[in-house]
Simulated scan of single mutants.
Amino acid sequence: MTGRHSMTRPGTARGAREDAGRPAPDWPAIVLRVVGSGLLIATAAIHLDLYLTGYRTIPTIGWLFLLQVIAAFGLALAVLAIPRRPAAALLASRLAAAAGAGFALATLGGYLLSVWTGLFGFKEVRTTAGIAAGVVEVAAFVVLAALALAPAPANREAAAPAT
Results as ranks from 00 to 15, higher is better:
Met1Glu: 09
Gly3Tyr: 05
Arg4Tyr: 07
His5Leu: 12
Ser6His: 12
Ala13Cys: 09
Glu18Trp: 06
Arg22Ser: 12
Pro23Gly: 09
Ala24Thr: 08
Asp26His: 15
Pro28Ile: 08
Ile30Glu: 10
Leu32His: 07
Val34Glu: 01
Val35Arg: 07
Ser37Asp: 08
Ala44Glu: 00
Leu48Phe: 15
Gly54Tyr: 03
Tyr55Ser: 08
Arg56Cys: 04
Gln68Val: 03
Val69Phe: 08
Val69Pro: 04
Leu75Thr: 01
Ala76Asn: 01
Ala81Val: 14
Ile82Pro: 00
Ile82Ser: 02
Pro86Trp: 15
Pro86Arg: 12
Ala89Cys: 05
Ala89Arg: 10
Ser93Ala: 12
Leu95Tyr: 03
Ala97Cys: 13
Gly102Trp: 02
Phe103Asp: 02
Leu105Phe: 15
Gly109Cys: 11
Gly109Phe: 10
Leu112Glu: 11
Ser114Leu: 07
Leu119Ser: 03
Glu124Thr: 10
Arg126Gln: 08
Arg126Tyr: 02
Thr127Lys: 00
Thr127Trp: 01
Ile131Asn: 11
Ala133Ile: 01
Ala133Trp: 01
Ala133Asn: 11
Val136Tyr: 00
Phe141Tyr: 11
Val142His: 00
Val142Arg: 01
Val143Glu: 06
Leu144Glu: 00
Ala145Trp: 12
Ala146Asn: 03
Ala148Asn: 09
Leu149Gly: 09
Pro151Cys: 11
Glu157Met: 13
Ala160Pro: 00
Pro161Phe: 10
Thr163Glu: 14
